[in-house]
Design a binder for these strands. Structure first.
Lengths: 327, 327
DNA sequence: GTGAAAGCGCTAACAT
DNA sequence: ATGTTAGCGCTTTCAC
């Protein structure tokens, strides 16, 4: 295949000149430029990125690691890509399926200089294992993290959950249950705390069986309703962290004859596309903005040394309750 | 940051020796290897991939382009990744959102040698535009394509649809409608042909209003039922190309009091995870196998010249009807 | 406005 | 078992 040398020879110029037209350098004679460009086209010449990255010392590309392709992560991702494009950066998507091995592979993209930085939308790996790679380039998570080598952009899940609870309480609900994703995540812990605290403040007892974990997809919402229907005492309202799961709850509940919100009130999370179609009241965490800000955080710490403060910046993105008709 | 030269100096050996321990070359003195490895670790040294790719002339990585993260594409992707891993290949995921500009970007990864080949799960770009890149490396599509520069691994959609129609007809259905994804895709055309032909063979008239397009997600299935309920004359069975959309159909139909399959029979496609949860009868196209075969096709034509036959191989993957309880 | 030459970090003959 | 050396394809001083 053609390379810069063969193009130079064919055009009767030096490789420097070819490089100049390649990079839209000024001070290249118009006729020369035309000629070189014509030959490039004719030869189907394209610069070898490995060579370019090697000599430039960077790739102008960030990695984004998502466990799966859930709309939640797609929303963050779209924010990242959008903001990255503005700065002339490309994004390299990496799916981990929450496997630590895959996350290690993504981190190795960073250490082997295939990407300039890495953004974690979620993680399975321990913070310390991730932090060990901070010396190779900026790492940003979209979840709260204490670690001082890793920057974070996140929602205050305690407050968001509190807000949801208060809204349900205002609407006369006392028997409230909830559904979360991974049981042991930091956000789930914050939510449990908010739940327990508010229940206690209102003198309600906590029903452990009204807490559902591993709820992320529509089928999980279906499962929740099926489980709920077998209970003698049922909640009148459900806080569901994730509109997809909430959609499953609504659809299944309706399929079984329950009216929303009269028989069961629902608050979802994330304001995903499906929530609008179903009239689902939801708490919008502004996921796209989280993605945007995560990229900006990377961008601003590109040339900053590891030890520097900027690398460990923590940014809270505000949330917002979107009222529709499910409460 | 450390590079091979600094490691060599620190270890008191040549860069060749460092390179040898890096690549697990035999004929390296055990003591030397230990020493070099120790220093690498201490220095946090990782080889620069751009340099490696540059000199090797390949990246051992294929690009996989998907329009979005629909479970359909995830299934193909998992087949690709699985098979790629077996051959020591990595995968580079690229989301196009069916935007030609994004597909061009992915193709440029190929022409600039960031990937060794490119697999299209679906496409927005015209075949000719894609074929123009075939000279840079093997391109494989997971849809039927005539082009002789592009290999293809696909389902015979005419036969699959025929099979579904026949199954419904065997179950006494005559009023049959269907839902497809993109209206103008090759597969949609094949399906329309199968539909028209079978209807004609059984002396049935074609109801254009029973043909729904742009049905890929759950919300689309919801829409279909909502539209259907407003019709005076309704089909008794629906063929839905995509289990997600079929799930929406089922859930919404049940929510509105219809019984499946008594009031409405459904056949889905793809045998996606959700179909099992809903007892959905579906036509399994073996998407994962399509992905696997797509990678193998790339792999086998790696070192083959463009002009060669292997590049344009066409492989049909057989489908299978999975009987559950929605018909 | 153009070119010669050095070098990015690595691998792989070839020599010893 | 180890080292010397010549590139891979490109960008970038520096000189003219």
């Amino acid at each position: 295949m053609a390379n810069i040398k063969s193009i130079a020879k064919l055009a009767g110029v030096s490789v420097t000149t070819v490089s100049r037209v390649l990079n839209n350098h000024p001070y290249v004679n118009e006729a020369t430029r035309q000629k070189v460009q014509h030959i490039m086209e004719k030869e189907g010449y394209r610069p070898n990125s490995s060579a370019v990255h090697l000599i430039k010392g960077h790739t102008d590309r960030v990695g984004v690691i998502v466990p799966n392709s859930h709309p939640y992560f797609q929303a963050i991702l779209s924010g990242v890509m959008d903001e990255a494009a503005k700065s002339g950066y490309g994004t390299l998507l990496y799916q981990s399926r929450y496997e630590t091995q895959e996350e290690h592979k993504a981190l190795q993209l960073l250490s082997t200089k295939q990407i300039d930085g890495l953004l974690f939308c979620s993680r399975a790996l321990e913070l310390e294992a991730i932090a060990a790679y901070a010396k190779y380039g900026p790492i940003v998570t979209c979840e709260y993290t204490e670690n001082e080598q890793i920057a974070a952009v996140y929602t205050d899940h305690y407050e968001a959950f509190q807000k949801g609870m208060q809204y349900l309480i205002q609407h006369s609900h006392r028997a409230i249950g909830y559904c979360v994703g991974r049981a042991d995540s930091a956000s789930s812990q914050a939510r449990y705390l908010a739940y327990k605290t508010l229940l206690h403040e209102h003198g309600e007892v906590l029903h452990p069986e009204w807490i559902f974990t591993n709820c992320t997809e529509i089928k999980d919402g279906i499962r929740v309703i099926d489980t709920l229907m077998k209970m003698e005492e049922r909640p009148t309202a459900l806080l569901v962290t994730g509109d997809e799961a909430a959609a499953g709850v609504i659809l299944r509940a309706q399929a079984l004859g329950l009216r929303i919100p009269e028989d069961l009130a629902i608050i979802g999370f994330d304001n995903l596309p499906i929530s609008e179609a179903l009239g689902l009241t939801t708490i919008d965490q502004h996921l796209q903005e989280i993605g945007r800000e995560a990229f900006r955080t990377f961008y601003n710490s590109r040339n900053v040394e590891v030890k520097d403060i900027a690398r460990s910046s923590k940014t809270v993105i505000p949330f917002e309750l979107v009222e529709r008709s499910s409460v």
